[in-house]
Structures are given as C-alpha cells and as structure tokens.
Amino acid sequence: MLPAGLVRFLTEIAEVTRFTTKFFREILRPRFEFAEFLRQCFFIGYKSLGLVAITAFIMGLVITIQSRPTLVEFGAEAWLPKMVSVSLVREIAPVITALICAGKIGSGIGAELGSMKVTEQIDAMEVSGTNPYKYLVVTRVMATILMIPILAVLADAVSLYGAYLGSNIRGVVSWDLYWNQVFATLTYSDIMPSILKTFFFGFAIGIIGCYQGFNSKKGTEGVGRSANAAVVISSLLVFIIDLIAVQITDLAGLT
C-alpha cells in the first residue's frame, strides 16, 4: 500500500489537473463574464502595477550596480548595458513580476474564493443558477493570463530604466547610447520566450489561487491556509515553469 502522504499528494495532483482541464472546458463554452473579467483585470493588473514597477526599478538598479565591479575587473565596463539588459529582459523582470503577483494576486484570489467557499457563497451561486466556476475562476485565470505579460513588459521597461540610472551612478552612459546598446543586444529570441513564459506564469498563479480557494477547508483557518498555499505553490510553479521554459528555448536554439 502506498504511504498516506504520497496518496494525498497524488490525489492533490489529480484534483488540480481536473480543475485545470475544467478551466479549458469552461472557457470554450459561451457566455463569457466580460464585466467580471474586466473588474478582475483591473484588480490584478492595474492594482499590482505600482508594486511591480517599484520592484522592477530596484532590481534593474541593483543588478547594474552589482554587475559593475566584475565587468570593471575585465575592463568590459562598456558591456554593462548589454549584459544587464539581457539578464533583465530574459529572466529577472518576468520572474520578479510573476513572484510579486504570486504573492499579491495568488494570496488575494486564494483568500477571496476561500472565504466565499467557507461562507457557502459558492454553493449559493450554484443554487441560483450561476456557474461559479465560470464566473469566479475563468475570469480570474483569464485576467492573470493576460495581465502578467503586460506587467512583465512594463517591468522590463522600468527595470531597464533603473539599469540606465544604475549605469550612470559611477560611469557615464548617455541616454541614446544606452538604449542603442540595449536594443542592439536584445533579439527576438530574448524577448519572445520571456514574454511567452509569463502567460504560463499568469496561468499558474491564477489557477493555483482559484484551486486553493475553491477547495478551502472549513473555518477561518482554512481560508488562511488556502491563501498561504496559493502563494507557496504558485511561487514554486513559477520557478518550475521558468526551468521548463529555459530548457525549451535552449533546445530550440534561442539562447
């Protein structure tokens, strides 16, 4: 007989998979809750913008300042914009955005749906004839899928601006030269995979948050646990997806 922990884990995986396939089934059905989708987009996208922008700005600045000494050692200070822009666009900005959103949105969705589940609002919805999955899950997951990439693009821009300021703290790189170097360095193979993977980040954050909220245990403790689990699991998934994305881009010869 399998150990109880493993059984629980496999059951959980199966539940998540069923939950996810249900999302694809439901999204193809007509009657898309567009107003609710926009509302969720506003909360998920617009409300996270400030946080994401600040984080991205600081990351750009810090990465630049941290990279400088090593490059100076090689006498390759002029390569600072090139190196920093590649690392920011390819990896740091998307992942930071996804992690921030996993923390902010994942926990928010988990707690919101969890409390709805605990207070039996979801059951009430089902009774009243509204498809709770379609109204609550599909809109939120669609919102995260679409908002995280946009946040990531904005984070790219803000972090590159931060890197520009970082380059000019000790050295001198003119505005024109900086952007010239950045865009001369970046290629489609840098931007496309990094934007593409943010869709998957968004999907993971949304679906895990919704799943944890939908399957919240009874009581306020259950709500807290589902919010916490949403953050932990979606953060972990972000890294796992990142790993897979790197493998795929590497295999495709885009690195």
Binding site: L38, C41, F42, G45, Y46, I150, V153, D156, L186
Partner: peptide, 29 residues
C-alpha cells in the same frame, strides 16, 4: 467602473505599445 476600465485600458495599451516598440526597434536593428 468606467474610470477603472479606462485606467486598465491605459495600462494594457502602454504595455503592448512598449512591447511593439521594442520589437520594432530590435527588428529595425
């Protein structure tokens, strides 16, 4: 709700515009 949508729309347009500009500049290079 409208003002929220406007702000959201502005953000989405800004994001996509930035992406398109970046892609264009890189392609131009």
């Amino acid at each position: 709700q409208t003002s929220k949508n406007i702000r959201l729309g502005a953000m989405v347009i800004a994001g996509t515009a930035l992406l398109i500009i970046a892609l264009y500049v890189i392609g131009d290079k």
